[in-house]
Computed example of a mutant assay.
Amino acid sequence: MMQLAVVGAAGLVGQSVLELLAQRQFPAERVFAVDGPEHEASTVSYGNLELDIRQLDEFGFENVALAIFVAGDSVAREYVPQARAAGVTVIDFSSAFRLDAEVPLVVPAVNAEQLAGLEAGALVAVPNCTVTPLAMALRPLLPLQPKRLTVATYQSVSGSGQKALEELAEQTTALFSQRESENTVFEKRIAFNVLPQIGALDEDGMAEEERSIMLELRRLLQQAELPIEATAVRVPVFFGHAWAVSLEVAADIDLVQVKNRLVAAGLQCVTADQHGGHITPMEATGNDGVWISRLRKAGNTIQFWLAADNVRVGAALNCVLVAEAMYKAGVFE
């Protein structure tokens, strides 16, 4: 059996990765929780165990076969090369390597073939948590010949980390108590509000999150020329993302066939007589489903509402599924 490290273990995604590794009984002899100095002397849960958090700048990567990085761009750029130099296979959940042509960008339900032939010491990038569920929903529809994708995302504050959760909670309490509150994570108040920009704007007026959606989706789906119009919105929800999706296709649309394709790909399709006709981000949180509801068509456009747990399904589960696929392929032997 192998040993592995989770780097960024104290964060929301890191904790979810550890939870899933334990729940799914990943065959690791030992798991190390690794994070920065702000988490010194802290512990995190791994199944029934409490793991001491090891300091990243002191951690010996030569002790593990696999490192799952969920610690952000700057940490990945500095420490992923160090880990690989020690012969460690790395799965990275950050934007540092997602668009690197030499690094496979993988969602096993979408493009598992990208993992074929990888050896120990390989680096695999996993997409933005907003991209993964969307790619899973679009992959079964590729035979219908997509012509244009228009998507609006409604993204919970957990996508910005623990401090964002605390800011929403504090602002909500302050407003009910008629107290002033500060904006520290977000530029404008998030409580009882929506923020129609996630990340800095480029010279074309496209926000960082919107460009991430466009570029990562095109790469995952191997649709380099697909027009993608994305609007990313932060909403005052703690957990769970949602997407309003419109996909124009060249082929004739048979909604029964569309639903069958989605179900065959493992997605949860809710009909008008189930769950009140739709699934909300709250209902999607805490489970492994990628939920589709409000499925309909307008001319040659397929429209639907998508919801998923951004931390668990959009981020952590994909990291663990990649690790499982690599283990089954014998990468760590």
Rank of each mutant, 00 (worst) to 15 (best):
C129R: 05
N300A: 09
F97T: 06
V290L: 02
T43P: 07
P127I: 06
K147L: 15
A135D: 10
Q155H: 15
E333N: 11
K259H: 07
A120M: 05
R296F: 00
A200L: 11
E182F: 13
V151R: 08
G205N: 10
V322A: 04
G266I: 05
A329W: 04
E102P: 06
G286W: 02
T130W: 14
R219I: 07
V249K: 04
F332V: 02
R24K: 07
Q23M: 05
D100H: 10
M214E: 15
A230R: 07
E324M: 02
I302F: 01
A251S: 14
Y154N: 15
Q15T: 06
T43F: 07
R296G: 03
F32L: 00
L220A: 06
E167I: 11
K297N: 11
F59E: 11
Q82T: 03
L168C: 12
A122K: 10
Q23H: 08
F239Y: 10
L295E: 07
N128Q: 03
L141I: 04
S94A: 12
L295D: 11
V64Y: 05
V13C: 00
R77V: 08
I253F: 00
A67P: 12
E40W: 11
A251C: 09
R24D: 13
I53Y: 10
P127K: 02
A200W: 11
P236R: 00
V320D: 00
N48P: 04
G36E: 08
G14Q: 04
G205Q: 08
S160W: 14
A316T: 12
E209R: 14
V249N: 06
A207R: 10
A230C: 08
E102D: 13
E229Q: 15
R218Y: 01
E170G: 10
A28N: 00
L255M: 04
R98T: 14
V237C: 14
V237N: 10
A224G: 03
A122E: 13
V110T: 05
F61N: 09
A33Y: 02
T184W: 11
G277S: 08
F69I: 03
W243E: 08
D57K: 12
R294V: 05
L306H: 07
L195Q: 12
E203F: 03
Q268W: 04
E166M: 07
E182P: 05
A174D: 14
T285I: 01
E208N: 12
